[in-house]
Amino acid sequence: MNAWLAQHFRALAWALSRLAAAPVNTLLSLLAVGIALALPAGGQMLLGNALQIARNANAAPQVSLFLALDADRKAVDDITTRLKNNPQVKELRYIPRSEALKRFQAREGLAELLAALPSNPFPDAFVVTPRNADPTAMDALRDEFRQWPKVEHVQLDSAWVRRLDALLRLGRTSVVVLAALLGLGLVAITFTTIRLQVVSQRAEIELSRLLGATDAFICRPFYYFGAVQGLLGGAVAWLIVLAVTLALRAPVAELAALYHASAALQPLGVPDSLLLLAFAAGLGWLGAALSLGRHLREPV
């Protein structure tokens, strides 16, 4: 076990020493990797913030139930009981028809119009906040409410939910596509760097084979090199995203203030940051594996 660990430690030390041996090349490679990864990582950061802003916008989707005009007190109580017992209902608010009338009378220009009517035209209503804001779940809830007695009309306030959902899906897909494309770039950078390392180490590799080195022994340092380069590139990307977040924080807050909202741009969270680093290291490892497969399969 100690020997196994020592071999891994030696491979890691070799990888670090090779990175340190050519600081300018290493820096340029890390910048290229970092910038490539910063784009999808930045997209993920913006997406996360957009989601958070949407959640904070106090616009939870609601379902409105309008009862028939002839619904009596008993019917109202019955609906209230049904709603309270429904596990899908998170909150409910009863708006009596008299209160609805008062609200509209208070609006400028409507009082006279309503006074001209022979009777109160508004029905009793319930405003329900569902526990699950998923559009499909809300559709199911609407269909259920429609079946209830004395429920004349059910209005689903889900159009914006669908739009937001579609926008977020578009955003997520864009981030994934961007990550895939730029991840290929990272693989290509690592592929080329490892190829150059293999060429510069050809004599040592050939000698090692003659002295009894296995493929694993020869490849291990290059795998570490690719993974460490990817990891450091991921760290550069993380720093870029952090810098962009800090730079945009004030302008975004100002923009939000113009819409009477508050928004503080947040950097990548811990899970996303760890995912970014793991993704970068994994792609570096993959680039190394592809390069070694191409350049180290010689029958010595």
């Binding site: 020997a3 040592e204 003659l210 002295l211």
Partner: peptide, 26 residues
């Protein structure tokens, strides 16, 4: 080997150490 195949960027100690590193000696 006829051409010795020494690693000229490594010290004498490191050159001799190489087979042992390969064999996984502590």
């Amino acid at each position: 080997f006829q051409d010795q195949k020494l690693l000229f960027d490594r010290s004498v100690f490191e050159n001799i150490m190489l087979p042992l590193a390969i064999a996984g000696f502590p």
